[in-house]
Each structure stands twice: as C-alpha cells, then as structure tokens.
Amino acid sequence: MEIQKGVFLFLFVAAILLGMGQAAATDDITTGELPTGGSGDFIVTSAPSNGVYYTINGGIPTLNSTRYTAPIVLNRTLNIKYMIVKNGTVKYGIIHHTLTGNITNRTYPHLIFNETPLIQIPNGTYYQLNNGNITPYTTPLALTGNTIMKYLKNSTNTTQMGIIKNTPAKLVNKIKTSKIRVKKWYRRGGKWRYKWRYYWTYKQIKQKYQELQPAA
C-alpha cells in the first residue's frame, strides 16, 4: 500500500512539472528585433505590427519608439526620424522642419502618415515643392522621395513661413574606433627581488552602432 502511494505521488508531481513546461513553452514568444542592412527597404522576419514609429530626439526609430496615432503639429523646428512598417517591409526617412521669418498670425502644418508622409496646411496657404511654382493649397501633399516643401502665407516667397524637407533613409551598421588611456603593468628588478610598476599607454577600442543615412 505504501509503495502504491509513493508511485501515485511520483506520477502526480511528474504531471505537474510536465504541464508547467508546456505552459512555459507556450508563453515564450520571441519578439525579434528588426534586421539591419544597407538598404532602405527590407523584409522583417518577426512580422511586427503595421504602423509608423518615430523619434524627435535624434534617436533611431524602433518598435519601442513612439507610435504614430494622430497628426503631428509642426509648431517648432523639428527633426523627425520615422520608420514605416507595412506587411513586413520597413522604410526609413527623416523629416526636418524649420520655421522661417518673423510672421504674425502664423499657421502651422500638420504631418500625417498614410504609408507615405503627408503635409496638411490651412486652406488659403501657399506652397512650393522643390523649385516649382507657388501654388495655393487644396489637399494634403505627399512627400515622396527627396522633397523640399516651402509653405507661404501668400503668393510671394517673401512671406515664407517654413521649410519641410523629407529624406528617404537607410539603416546602416558602423564601427567607431577610439583610444582610451590605460595602465600597462610590468615587473622590474632582479631574480629574487622585483617590483611591479606601470606606465600609461593607449588602447584602441571598437564600438558598433547604427545610423540613419540618406538612401542613394
């Protein structure tokens, strides 16, 4: 009878441990990082959620960055780095906005993301794409490729209110080599009596980092 109880207890504990192992295996979901490479577009294997992620502090956007949910008001000088994820494809870009002129009753554009960056400005405002014609605004403007957009209060460029520059980018891996000052120890003295001494020298170290660069 005691043996049967012991066998039963052993099987019961084994069943519990097996169930815990299966639960742990089920809950262990790997959230992979985005792969890096030399191109602006690439396929991610971890299938992250579609959306736009951006930073305004100079950092490289990742899946942990601020996710775009509403239009961004460009009411100051900003450098926005963004990452657009769509069906496993990732595109990077940089939008730089600069306010210009000392203008009263200034209006501010809104940055919208819908697979590509869009700029919305109030009706009655004028704009100029690259070096094209000055045109009255009627509908959101897509910033595709390398685009420079100037927005103006009226039909003359003397009332320019700001400049928006969109630059498609690519994520690249880089290595930075630098020198640090270190102590070099050596032993000095005779066979039976010696002392440890040191002198200062320099050692090279390599640091890996990532950077957004304009796409070719």
Rank of each mutant, 00 (worst) to 15 (best):
A70S: 14
P71G: 11
I72D: 10
V73N: 13
L74A: 06
L74K: 10
N75A: 09
R76Y: 04
R76D: 12
R76W: 02
T77V: 06
L78M: 15
L78S: 13
I80C: 07
I80P: 01
K81T: 00
Y82F: 12
M83G: 01
I84Q: 12
N87L: 08
G88I: 01
K91A: 12
K91G: 12
G93K: 09
I94R: 14
I95D: 00
H96G: 02
H96V: 07
G101I: 02
G101M: 07
G101C: 07
N102V: 01
N102L: 11
I103W: 11
T104S: 10
N105I: 00
R106F: 01
R106M: 07
R106L: 06
T107Y: 10
T107R: 15
T107K: 15
H110I: 00
L111N: 05
L111C: 05
L111W: 08
L111D: 10
N114A: 09
T116S: 14
T116W: 06
P117Q: 11
P117T: 07
P117S: 12
P117F: 09
L118N: 05
I119F: 07
I119G: 07
I121C: 08
G124M: 04
G124D: 01
G124L: 04
T125D: 13
Y127G: 01
Y127I: 02
Q128N: 03
N131S: 03
G132Y: 12
G132T: 04
G132P: 10
G132D: 13
G132K: 12
G132M: 11
N133H: 03
N133F: 03
I134C: 05
I134M: 11
